[in-house]
Design a protein around this nucleic acid. Sequence first.
DNA 1: ATCCTATCCTGTAGGC
DNA 2: TGCCTACAGGATAGGA
Length: 293
Amino acid sequence: MHRSGTVPRMPELPEVETVRRMIEAHARGRRVAEARRSRSRLHVSSRSSGLASLRGRTLERVERRGKYLLLRFGDLTLLSHLGMSGRWLFFDEAPSRLMPHVHARLEFADGSELWFQDPRRFGQLRVVARADVDRDASLQRLGRDPLDPPLTARELAELANGSRTSVKVFLLDQARIAGIGNIYASEILFRARVHPRRRAGAVAADEWRRIAAEIPAVLQEAIDRMGTTFSTYRTPLNEPGAYGERLMVYDRAGEPCRRCGTPIRRVVQGQRSTFFCPSCQGKALKQRRSARR
DNA sequence: ATCCTATCCTGTAGGC
DNA sequence: TGCCTACAGGATAGGA
């Protein structure tokens, strides 16, 4: 039986949405007294420089675009991506103990604090002028949010029209649909009873209908449970998410399918694990064609 | 254009 | 017990 060597937390739309709500609930309306950036560097285009310019500004609201968070401070926006291991942590008062991998600290005027921690440094953090937010390359690449308004089967079919990539990789493509990650892609396809290796451009209309129904169902159920926690994922109040117990296939290779008992299989697509039930999710298109003969 | 691959990084599990 | 290694995958750049 395969057990992944690590128990990663992978912030996808439901986890990011949970973080968004928590930050709004606890830090909204607070004024930044001090904004500090640690020496530890984040990766890629993620400069946390400019953080000091948030001083004296008030956190007005927090938005989400795909897996990105936008913390709005007047005419400045703090753009944040959690990457693989990023966390926003909220404290009513400054913690006395030191924590590793803290890249940014916002100290509010009332003594509460909001920290960004990211051990693996895949996360992003940058201050952008409000006028430049919509010109940000990362945000410009994003496709539409799958929940707002809900994706329709017709839209999905149009997005996939002519695509030769697998439906699993298709669901992960943030340029088409922004927010679905590796865990929920497998879960969505299981519940829609579609084989992950099916070519996206060849998925049938009834299958798109099932996928279109399961995308909001799975994501909303996960949001309701504050996301999925494997080990270290926590909300900004340090609570675990509860969707993990609902997982049907993810990280369950070799274990019996909760629907039919067939052992769950793990394959690799695009250098990422995919989990599926070979019985419930039928066959890849290629195999199905030959079976018809 | 579209798809694919390598790369970044560190905590953790599993083997010995 | 403790050391060692393999593995997990977000976005992105560059190549086919």
